[in-house]
Design a protein around this nucleic acid. Structure first.
Lengths: 207, 207
DNA sequence: TACAAAATTAAACAATTGTTTAAATTAAGC
DNA sequence: GCTTAATTTAAACAATTGTTTAATTTTGTA
């Protein structure tokens, strides 16, 4: 799976940066080659084509994106605490891989391309299974409300994060976040807390 | 503002479709011209360039995107009911203009382009002002919790919607939505209800 | 009808795109 | 050290890109 040489990883990292910042169509193979300090022909030589480079990048990144849910499922904590930790893990993972998420979100919503996202779908499905278990556990213990729409919980977490990310310039101004550190700090404190509060309130609130 | 001829509107609509489905860089002016049944040169003739076409499109669409918040602010209903109606209006507006939102979200997160989004920012700012008022009203009446992160409420609403939209193929399968009508119906019922429930719980829940 | 402006067209444009080629360089195995 | 394979390079490739040109058609007006 990770059978990439140093040079190939250079290209993959350069591609990730350029694809995320300029989009797949906006980034030329020459831009990527320059960013990676290699000859243009190396991209075709190693990956076959620009499209295959994208596919290789997606597989390369997603394989290292698995969450530590297994540890969480064996911890002796309440369903609510599990959900709070789960939320934190979600946010941390998206924040760490925001370039890849940026690329994925765009490619997924583009009808033109038909890239292989099996790896991505698989990760999502596993997360969903775990989520289902925790929610059911909480409901059986009478802690969580009964009418929870479980599949829409990940969209609530990830979507909130990403809408902020997508409109970063606007919210930087509104929230007075002038530096990169201030923005990063806001994500790790205020945003994370907000999302946790939202999820917590949703799970516990009774009509 | 709306001083566009029928032919120009044809081009704008074609551009919206192609930009939304293929991305700005992925859609060629020839594709757009073909979709609008006009000669390629007409785009330069009417709009000057591809970039200016995008700017014209954004202004054209956003000018018709204002929400009916004014009516809402004068209604004699509780802050909670206002927030519920506000949430519905948000979702309805995004759903109606999802193509434009798709384009905007991508262009905003692309560093390359420096398009004029003053109109978009203005709309967002106005919505935020209204939102602030309602939240404060609710807090003063002792209905809403005190520690609400108001700027993060729109991201929670819009983000949830858009994450579903972006991962539509995945959620269509998970939720068993086989037809376009089923998907559209899910948005108008389950999704809208979920987001309203989330917002309601967040506003009312006390620690 | 006649004339000027606007609209529309096909063709050409230079630049950029992803990819390939064929030669040159480096690395590895014996 | 020789040989073969792997890597790297500059150049060339055909196709596509956004845009312009110059000629033609349509429209509106007097």
């Amino acid at each position: 799976m990770t059978d990439f040489s140093d040079k190939q990883i250079d290209i993959l990292q350069a591609a990730e940066k350029r694809f995320a910042e300029d989009g797949f169509d906006g980034a030329s193979v020459r831009d990527i080659a320059k960013e990676a300090n290699v000859n243009v022909a190396m991209i075709s030589y190693y990956f076959g084509s620009k499209e295959k480079l994208l596919e290789a990048l997606i597989i390369y990144r997603i394989s290292g994106m698995r969450m530590e849910l297994e540890n969480l499922s064996h911890e002796a904590i309440s369903p609510l605490e599990k959900m709070m930790k789960l939320t934190e893990l979600y946010i941390a993972r998206i924040n760490k891989n925001k370039c890849m998420y940026q690329i994925l979100h765009f490619e997924l919503s583009i009808k033109k391309r038909a890239i292989d996202i099996k790896a991505y779908t698989e990760v999502k499905r596993k997360n969903m299974d775990f989520l289902n278990k925790v929610i059911q556990e909480g409901q059986q213990q009478g802690i969580f409300r009964k009418d929870i729409n479980t599949p829409l919980i990940p969209p609530t977490i990830i979507g909130t994060f990403f809408h902020l990310q997508m409109n970063r310039p606007f919210y930087e101004e509104v929230l007075g976040l002038t530096t990169d550190e201030a923005y990063e700090n806001y994500i790790n404190t205020e945003l994370t807390n907000h999302i946790k509060q939202v999820i917590k309130a949703y799970l516990l609130h009774e009509n």
